[in-house]
Design a protein around this nucleic acid. Structure first.
Length: 498
RNA sequence: GCCGCCGUAGCUCAGUUGGCAGAGCAGCGGACUUUUAAUCCGAAGGUCGAGGGUUCGAUCCCCUCCGGCGGCACCA
């Protein structure tokens, strides 16, 4: 709703008496006038543009009212206009910042002055001008020449209050970016989070790889997939829910340290921390276990935080706290999951402590309930929860000393899970048994059970070195780095209803 | 899927205990050579999310639907 302005219905070439023009038709009419005057409203390029921030940097020491002879060429969008007649000021915005332009009739002559003044807010222009400091001390470019680079046919958001409507901000992110310096800064920060994570891993001997997004069989996480169809092959394909299994096949292949940053797709509900497509970083390292992975993960996050100038309240400095999962649950709920390894016993223990017990839940689901309802919200400072029940972890290796547990951790920050890692299970027979167990769950109606992946089993049979692996939710990491509580704020185009 | 709140001009927001719907910004016409949310004068701009119902009369009350937000459920 609300996205179909009447632009397409605007009169073209109607030079009749000035009737009430709506804001769209007025811009159309200006476009026609420009063309009639021989001005190309959509030229092809504009060379030699300097970022506004570098113009500012070049004149950081300019005294109030001081003139210079320093010429600059900038380009951007007209964001504001003050004054009319023989002199006016315009604000020009590019990705790096905002700068004031001064337009003078005595410099430009009456015709060009009129043309510059009659441009619309939102039009893109290129400008040649000389820097000076205004009477009020504002760095300004006195416009000697300008070129329309693209006519804007729709009005920009309100210049003072900006774009407030959340729905429009998400559906038309370009408007949010035009209106909000903060939005631009946020997504630049997001890009830097990703590039710094890359830089960190590259420097530590990892190679970046790309594995299939369209997969004949999905796996590597507990989630329902999106299903699609390949016409030429006439077969069902799934959008990946994780990169895990393919990446481990690369470890089998001898690549030793690999990572992938890309989209995963999970066919589940939306929430402030769930978007159906999201960006995941996974890495795998031969000859490492989950403790090595934890150490590297906390260093990576600290590196990213430092590089982007993180200044949030949560202290991300390593080492992070480490607790066992069972200990964290016991500590916060009084329930000892390891002392109640049967479904009914655990359910009874939870009931006895006044907790709601979903009747259909299995033992692992009850553990997950305890974790997500009673423990996760308390985990604000970074923490690793270690050693999960094997029932919850089909790809993790058995704990070297704790029966019934696997060597796995999840990292939590700000009350959110941000990472999931294990000492990878590399015993193919054990992995096969886990798949077979999952098949029984699937037969019992678990829609998220792991499908049996014979190609993966065969890869493990080839021999996979002891390996540590991890998945880090990049969107959630960006939420933490930038202090946002909704994933939609940090995803450029979040999922919306039609 | 369930519950609650919300949807008024291009944008930001008022408002109507049910009686021709208002402002600011933007836009249009005009004045102005140092402005910073420029100022001043003038004239415009609306299917009040959509559909149905109640009523002499509905933007307002009721129902359904669409969309958004929050919570629950689902969901590593």
């Amino acid at each position: 709703m609300g996205d179909d302005g009447p632009a397409g219905a605007a009169p073209v070439g109607d030079d009749g008496p000035a009737e009430a023009l709506d804001v769209f038709a007025a811009r159309r009419q200006k476009l026609d006038s420009l063309r009639a005057a021989g001005i190309e409203p959509f030229p092809h390029a504009f060379d030699g543009v300097e970022p506004i921030a570098s113009v500012r940097a070049a004149h950081a020491d300019l005294a109030q009212g001081e003139e210079t002879e320093s010429a600059h060429r900038v380009a951007g969008r007209i964001a504001a206009r003050r004054g009319q007649g023989k002199m006016a000021f315009l604000d020009l915005v590019d990705r790096s910042g905002r700068i004031q332009l001064q337009a003078r009739a005595d410099v430009l002559g009456p015709e060009r002055m009129e043309r510059l003044i009659s441009l619309d807010l939102g039009d893109l222009i290129g400008v040649d001008g000389v820097a000076f400091s205004s009477r009020r001390g504002e760095l300004t470019l006195r416009v000697d020449g300008f070129t329309l680079l693209a006519k804007s046919l729709r009005p920009p958001p309100e210049k003072h209050h900006g774009l407030q409507d959340v729905e429009t901000r998400f559906r038309h992110r370009e408007l949010d970016l035009i209106a909000s310096e903060e939005a631009r800064a946020l997504f630049i920060t997001r890009a830097r989070v990703i590039s710094e994570a890359r830089r960190f891993l590259d420097a530590e001997g990892f190679i970046e790889v790309e594995t299939p997004v369209l997969q004949p069989l999905y796996g590597g996480a507990a989630a329902r997939p999106f299903t699609t169809h390949h016409n030429a092959l006439d077969r069902t394909l799934y959008l990946r829910i994780a990169t895990e299994l393919y990446l481990k096949r690369l470890i089998v292949g001898g690549l030793e340290r690999v990572y992938e940053i890309g989209k995963d797709f999970r066919n589940e509900g939306l929430s402030h921390k769930h978007n159906p497509e999201f960006t995941m970083l996974e890495w795998y390292e031969a000859y490492a276990d989950y403790e090595d992975v934890a150490a590297r993960a906390e260093r990576l996050v600290a590196h990213v935080a430092e590089q982007i100038g993180y200044a949030g309240e949560i202290d991300l400095t390593p080492p992070w706290r480490r607790e066992t999962l069972a200990g964290a649950i016991l500590d916060r709920t009084g329930v000892d999951i390891l002392a109640h390894r049967e479904r009914d016993a655990l359910a009874a223990e939870m009931s006895a402590r006044g907790m709601v017990v979903p009747p259909g839940d299995t033992w692992p689901q009850l553990v997950d309930e305890l974790l997500s309802k009673h423990v996760e919200p308390t985990l604000i400072e970074p923490i690793f929860l270690l050693d999960y029940p094997v029932e919850l972890s089909p790809f993790a290796k058995r704990h070297r000393s704790q029966p019934g547990l696997v060597e796995r951790f999840e990292a939590y920050i700000g009350g959110m899970e941000v990472a999931n890692a294990f000492s990878e299970l590399n015993d193919p027979d054990e992995q096969r048994r886990r798949f077979e167990e999952a098949q029984r769950h699937a037969a019992a109606g678990d829609e998220e059970a792991q499908p049996y992946d014979e190609a993966f089993i065969q890869a493990l049979e080839q021999g996979m070195p002891p390996t540590g692996g991890i998945g880090i939710g990049i969107d959630r990491l960006v939420m933490i780095m930038t202090g946002h509580r909704s994933i939609r704020e940090v995803v450029l185009f979040p999922a919306m209803r039609d």
